[in-house]
Design a protein around this nucleic acid. Structure first.
Lengths: 137, 137
DNA sequence: TTCTTTGCAAATAATTTGCAAGTTG
DNA sequence: CAACTTGCAAATTATTTGCAAAGAA
C-alpha cells in the first residue's frame, strides 16, 4: 500500500491523519506479531510516546479499515499485522510455543470445502492452528 | 468417561477428589462453551458456591489431565468443554457472532496435510475458524 | 472555527497469587 | 496427621471509557 493511499482511505471515511496513527502503523510494519503493548513500546523507542489507549483506538480503526488484522497466538494479548503482510496461517506449538507461518495454499482445500458445504467464508488471516510441532512430538 | 474413572485419574496423580472439583466438572458437562465465570455461576445455582479462583485452578488441573479442553471463541474469556464432547471444530461468524460446530471430518485433509508436510500434529479440539457465515455474506 | 483525536486517570474485566484455615486419604 | 485444597483479599494484566485540552482540515 502506498504512502498516500491510506491517508486518503482515512480521509474518505472522515478520519484524520495524525502522527500517532502514522507511528502506530509504522510500528506494525516493522514488527511481526506485535501486541498493543509492544507496539506502544516500539513507538516510544523512536519518537515521542503514544498513549496505550491511543494504540488501542488506532488498532481498532486500522482494523476496521482493513489495513491491519489481528490473530490470537496464545492466552495473552492479540497480535497485529499489516493486512498486506498477513497472507499466511499461523501454527503455534502448545509445547514449546514456537510460532510458524505457512502459506495459505495449505488450507485452500479447507476454505473451499467450508464455502461449498456450508456457505462459510473462512477468514484465513485470523486463522491460527494449535498443535504440536515436529520437535515436540 | 465413567464416574469413577476420573476419580482414579486424579488419585493416580496424587490429586484429591473434592466436592468443588466434582461440581466444576458437572457444570462443564451440563453447559456447552462455558467460560470460567459462567461455570462459577452455574455451580452457584445448584449448590454451595465455589470460588472463582478455585474454578480457574480446577480448570487448569482438569485440562492438564486431559478431561477438559478449551478454545477461544472471541475476544473474551476462553470456553471449556468436556474433552469427551469436544470432538468438533468451532466456526465463529465475525459478523453476527453465531457459533457453529462441525464434524472433524471436514478438517481431516488439513490435519493429514499438516502432518505429512511439516510434521505438525493439529489439535483439532482447540481449532476455531473465524469467518463469515452464510447469512452474513 | 469546527469536529476529531489525544492524553490521562479512573473504571472494568480476566486472571493469578499468598496465605491461613479447612479437608482428604 | 501430613499433604493437598479452598476461600478470600490483594496484586496483575489487558482493555475501555469519560472528559478536557490539543490538533487537523
Amino acid at each position: 500500500m502506498s504512502e498516500t493511499s491510506w491517508h486518503e482511505q482515512l480521509r474518505a471515511h472522515g478520519y484524520r491523519v495524525t502522527p500517532q496513527r502514522q507511528l502506530v502503523l509504522e510500528a506494525i510494519k516493522a514488527a511481526e506479531h506485535a501486541t498493543p503493548e509492544e507496539i506502544c513500546a516500539k513507538v516510544r523507542e523512536t519518537a515521542r510516546g503514544v498513549n496505550i489507549s491511543t494504540v488501542y483506538r488506532t488498532l481498532e480503526l486500522l482494523e476496521q479499515l482493513g489495513l491491519v488484522t489481528h490473530t490470537h497466538l496464545g492466552h495473552g494479548a492479540p497480535t497485529y499485522h499489516l493486512a498486506a503482510d498477513a497472507d499466511h496461517v499461523h501454527l503455534v506449538c502448545h509445547e514449546c510455543g514456537e510460532i510458524d507461518e505457512v502459506a495459505p495454499e495449505l488450507v485452500r482445500d479447507l476454505v473451499t470445502r467450508f464455502d461449498e458445504e456450508m456457505g462459510f467464508a473462512v477468514n484465513v488471516h485470523h486463522l491460527t492452528v494449535f498443535g504440536r510441532c515436529r520437535k515436540c512430538r
